[in-house]
Simulated assay, not measured.
Amino acid sequence: MRWLRVVLVLGGVGLAAVGVGGLLTHWTASLWFLPLWLAGAVFLHDGVLVPMTFGVGGALWRVTSGLAPSARQCVVAGVWLTALMTVLAIPLILRRGVVANATVLPSNYLIDLLWTLGVIAVVTAIATLVRIRRAPRKRGTDS
């Protein structure tokens, strides 16, 4: 497995070198925003998204504490899928109608997002109910 790790690291370093080389050879005045954008992305990820993820994950884990562990995992996965799909769709929803070419964003992404979130909710509910029914029951607690 060590050889695989070495190959992956060397491949990553090689791809990073190709990217830096491309930036240095094709640098234009419009790319000056790139370091600022990258710094903002690091701040947004490390300063906002990671603490928010830990906070929401911990709260969600407490809220679902009465469920069987496998059912809890289904609920948590459904919530994270919902958040991920929403984050991915927000730029498309906000750009709708702003672009000059109507064929660039041809779909109604808000309706598509709502359908997707509905499917995620139904699948999460079904999976959670199946896991609850299959969970081992404690005996001797019926009184």
Rank of each mutant, 00 (worst) to 15 (best):
W3V: 13
W3P: 01
L8D: 01
L10M: 15
G11C: 04
L15G: 03
A16T: 13
A17T: 09
G19S: 13
G19F: 06
G22N: 14
L23C: 08
H26V: 05
W27I: 06
T28H: 15
L31A: 11
L34N: 05
L34W: 09
L34K: 05
L34Y: 09
L38Y: 14
A41F: 11
H45V: 14
D46W: 12
V48W: 12
V48G: 01
V50C: 07
V50F: 13
P51H: 07
P51C: 08
T53P: 00
T53A: 08
F54K: 08
G55F: 08
G55E: 05
V63N: 02
T64R: 00
G66T: 02
G66E: 00
L67V: 00
A68G: 03
S70I: 03
S70M: 09
A71H: 03
R72V: 12
Q73E: 12
V76Y: 02
T82E: 04
T82K: 02
A83S: 12
A83E: 08
T86D: 01
T86Y: 11
V87E: 13
V87F: 15
L88Q: 07
A89K: 01
A89N: 02
P91A: 02
I93T: 06
R96I: 02
R96S: 14
V98L: 07
N101D: 14
N101C: 06
A102S: 12
L105S: 03
L105H: 01
P106A: 05
S107P: 02
S107N: 15
Y109F: 10
L113D: 02
L114E: 13
T116K: 04
L117M: 09
I120P: 00
I120E: 01
A121F: 09
V122H: 05
V122Q: 04
V123Y: 00
T124G: 00
A127M: 13
T128F: 01
T128D: 00
V130S: 10
V130A: 05
I132T: 15
I132D: 10
A135R: 06
P136M: 05
P136L: 14
P136A: 12
R137W: 03
R137T: 07
G140M: 07
T141V: 13
T141Q: 10
S143H: 15
